[in-house]
Amino acid sequence: MSQASTILGLSLSKVMAVVWLLMLFSGLSVVYVSHQCRLLYSELAVLEQKKNGLQVAWGQYLIEESALASLHRVEVFAQQKLGMQAPVLDQIVVVKP
């Protein structure tokens, strides 16, 4: 009987108390962790939304960029505003490695 009432030298009632405390702690931890989880998840959701927004913006910038940097526009700009021209043959120096 005395063996059953003590575990690791502690009486059964003390062991029960420790287990109760552990359970309480574990329960509160679950609450805390799930709260943290929700916070992080909502952050993730916000970031994902942001990502989608950026994706949209990227697409628009891509279009804008290729509209502004269209070869035709660049060519007209280079020739007319900057007075550039394609090098004629004897201006080209072929460099061999």
């Binding site: 929700r38 998840y41 909502s42 959701a45 916000v46």
Partner: peptide, 9 residues
């Protein structure tokens, strides 16, 4: 949640 944040998938 109440504020419209996604909290769980």
């Amino acid at each position: 949640d109440q504020k419209g944040r996604v909290i769980k998938d």
